[in-house]
Design a binder for these strands. Structure first.
Length: 221
DNA sequence: TGCCAGGCCGGGT
DNA sequence: ACCCGGCATGGC
């Protein structure tokens, strides 16, 4: 026992154990490279992952899933290629913003990017138009293996339904709950968030919840 | 058939 | 500090 934890921490650990026991390891993020993770993180904004996969596939099929190629690709052409992901015009713009950021700040080197101090890097990412808190943290955790917890709509619904946060809690507050109560461990943060999404997709974190068969049901008092 | 998906931004109060 | 409309495809 390294440190004592409060009731919230106990409950979070219980939730994690239940999810892991039920679903097993998730092996996230589903991608072949760190760069693909970053592109996917932007494409999946408010969008079904299946549609994102199509968009990624179309980029791969045209052998364009590389920073320099995409950076030099006309925005309208990029928009067409990612069409299945929805919001394709604004996402093409956001991707372009991000590519410019990579080139200008890190000379296009993900290795250099990864060597930056995490807090600085997070600030930089958030300053890119089109990259908000969840997208930035997804890039940090799933592409660069930085220890930061990703919060999404599923996460908020889960915590609020289990009485750990208010429904309208801010991103930073929800994130703090995880990061102050869990070991600072990339693998744990990776797995936990992935399990929450798995739960969300299959069970009871939809806008219209279906809780009958939810594996967390025994934890609800 | 409609509702929804692993957000974010910009403008208005 | 909130609140809201816009952005868009494809699955179920």
């Amino acid at each position: 026992m390294v440190k004592s934890i409060g009731a919230s921490g106990q409950k979070l650990h219980l939730i994690y154990k239940s999810l892991y026991r039920h679903f097993g390891p998730q092996h996230w993020w589903p991608a072949d490279s760190a760069f693909e993770v970053m592109v996917g993180a932007i494409l999946t904004q408010n969008t079904n992952w299946l549609n994102v996969e199509r968009a990624i596939k179309s980029l791969k099929k045209n052998k364009l899933l590389e920073l320099n190629k995409l950076y030099n690709l006309p925005k309208t052409r990029l928009a067409k290629l990612i069409r299945p992901a929805g919001y394709y015009n604004i996402k093409a713009k956001r991707l372009k913003n991000f590519f410019s950021f990579l080139i200008k700040n890190y000379n296009g080197s993900l290795k250099k990017m990864c060597e930056a101090h995490m807090q600085d890097l997070r600030e930089q990412l958030l300053s890119v138009n089109g990259i908000g808190a969840e997208t930035a943290d997804s890039i940090l955790l799933y592409a660069l293996d930085k220890p930061v917890f990703v919060v999404d709509a599923y996460t908020k619904r889960m915590l609020s339904r289990h009485g750990l946060v208010n429904e309208k809690s801010e991103y930073a507050e929800v994130q703090k709950l995880f990061m102050q109560n869990l070991k600072n461990d990339v693998k744990l943060f990776n797995e936990f968030h992935a399990l929450i999404v798995k739960l969300g997709k299959e069970f009871c974190l939809k806008r219209r919840p279906k809780c009958e068969t939810c594996p967390l049901r025994p934890l609800v008092s």
